[in-house]
């Protein structure tokens, strides 16, 4: 779609946000597929997850390809974002433990698995102006 004026953009943004709201109802698996993640084997993890979701017909799960998340020491990484907005970041997800993501974090909501990375990113800076 070509945006020819401000009204077009407004409409497009509304539909994009609606699309996001709809997809936020799924459990999202954000796979870090930058050069760094890919080098560590993230594309194989992606394939494994994709096949599993298809073969087991798991609904309400969405795979999302994202760029570098910044946790190079624990690549490949998969972040699981739940419909309620909560999320866990999982590190060192290789081909052999990729399916744990589905078993432990999609079918269940495990909060104490060994590959959970503690993140320390301020999440609400766009609201409070980032004041320390």
């Amino acid at each position: 779609m070509q945006i020819k004026n401000r009204e077009d953009l407004k409409k497009y943004r509304e539909s994009a946000i609606a699309g996001k709201t709809a997809s936020d109802k799924n459990i999202k698996l954000l796979v870090g597929l930058g050069t760094c993640g890919t080098a560590a084997g993230a594309d194989m993890v992606w394939a494994k997850l994709e096949n599993k979701i298809k073969s087991d017909k798991i609904s309400g799960v969405e795979l999302v390809k994202v760029g570098c998340v910044g946790y190079c020491y624990a690549e490949p990484t998969v972040e699981v974002v739940y419909p309620d907005g909560e999320s866990v970041l999982l590190g060192n997800i290789k081909e052999d433990n990729a399916l744990d993501v589905i078993e432990l974090h999609v079918k269940k909501k495990t909060n104490n698995a060994s590959n959970i990375i503690k993140t320390n990113i301020a999440s609400n800076i766009f609201k409070n102006g980032g004041k320390k």
């Binding site: 497009y12 943004r13 539909s15 994009a16 946000i17 699309g19 996001k20 954000l30 870090g32 999302v64 390809k65 994202v66 760029g67 570098c68 998340v69 910044g70 972040e79 320390n120 990113i121 301020a122 800076i125 980032g130």
Partner: peptide, 26 residues
């Protein structure tokens, strides 16, 4: 505990870089 604040990296790892609709939604 010091926290990261992500401005330049605000969308990195949050959205699909090849989908403009995700960028526009953010």
């Amino acid at each position: 505990m010091a926290q990261q604040i992500r401005i330049a990296l605000r969308n990195c790892g949050k959205l699909d870089p090849e989908k403009i609709e995700q960028y526009i939604a953010q």
